[in-house]
Design a protein around this nucleic acid. Structure first.
Lengths: 187, 187
DNA sequence: AAACGGCGGAACGCAACCGTTACGTCGTAG
DNA sequence: CTACGACGTAACGGTTGCGTTCCGCCGTTT
């Protein structure tokens, strides 16, 4: 019954609005204005701001990232880093993600949703990437996937989303070498 | 002329309010209410919310962190990790920092202030910690301090401020080993 | 003793947004 | 052709916050 094109317009408006003003200042009226839509169309779909944002976000957040199998750990790793760094440099994403992370610190429902998405991705990376490398003999048996994921995603997130410094030509390469050495050492 | 105790009360209220509702939703009225103070007392000191928050935050943000010299790189590193992880687990800090980071993505003035503070600390860590280690011969000459700082602070920030997972007993130790190996490899 | 000035409190007009309702339009399904 | 229902528009009363102003209180300075 609900018109699909309207729903799409609202979803887009929410994402843009989220990027521009953040969750804290996001207002239903602004979303409606931006989507070129009546408030009624929004309230017909969701009963309040939190519910609306959560539904829209979790859709996006739980999309699976295709994980690489290039045949070697350093290849896999570099490809993953490329994918993640591209995502983190995306205009909308780079605004929304830190904002929701901060909001999660005070809203349990947001926290739960983000944690779920994050955990899913972390596990996928851990099992696939690290698992593959261990089977291949490129990483020691006891490699802790938790530490590994921290070592891989942490620095990248720090640099792109926190320090907001650009990534140079050779950065990912240097970084791949460093991470590989780090993981070999923890075995 | 302005009473000092009132100023202190306001500063504390701003920090608490910032932690509880974030910059986006922080209101002067709420700060005044919380500080047990009239709005006039606030407007007598700062002319608006941004100016108030910036002045209060930069005070805190630019406090220098005493950097360790334990005699060995792994000792220095582990001590630094202890200090940082303690700070990042502090109730107020762990709420305010990600929040302001997110806000910085859309407010140039906040961005500039935080970047300045961050850069100061990063350089201090880079020069002192890495510099010491290189002089001692524990790290290769060409060690890139930028990459190094990313590798050190990134995973910790990721785990504590983003993923919000607790740090286990042996985590810092494991992590120290990993980082050391990583940095030796990039030389 | 008098003047000064920071203080809390209260109220101002204005703006934004909340969530809800009533209304008239329009496309579609029956 | 008719009935239905989603749509946009507009308005509702209520809340919150802005930045400003005026008041009376009270401690300090002179």
């Amino acid at each position: 019954m609900l018109r699909g094109d309207i729903t799409v317009a609202i979803r887009n408006a929410v994402m843009s609005e989220l990027a521009e003003v953040g969750y804290g200042r996001l207002s239903i009226e602004a979303v409606a204005r931006r989507a070129g839509v009546g408030k009624t169309a929004i309230y017909r779909r969701w009963s309040n701001k939190l519910e609306m944002v959560m539904e829209i976000i979790s859709d996006v957040a739980e999309r699976k990232v295709p994980l690489p199998d290039t045949g070697s750990f350093s290849g896999d790793l570099q490809l993953l880093l490329m994918i993640v760094s591209t995502a983190l440099q995306h205009r909308i994403a780079s605004q929304i993600i830190p904002d929701l992370m901060a909001e999660a610190a005070r809203n349990p429902q947001i926290a739960e949703t983000l944690q779920r998405a994050l955990r899913t991705h972390q596990q996928a990376v851990g099992e696939k990437l690290i698992g593959q490398a261990v089977t291949r003999g490129e990483l020691p048996e006891g490699t802790d996937p938790e530490v590994a994921v921290d070592m891989i995603l942490g620095p990248l997130y720090w640099r792109l989303a926190v320090a907001r410094q650009p990534i140079g030509e050779d950065y990912l390469e240097k970084f791949t070498v460093a991470v590989t050495a780090a993981l070999r050492a923890t075995g």
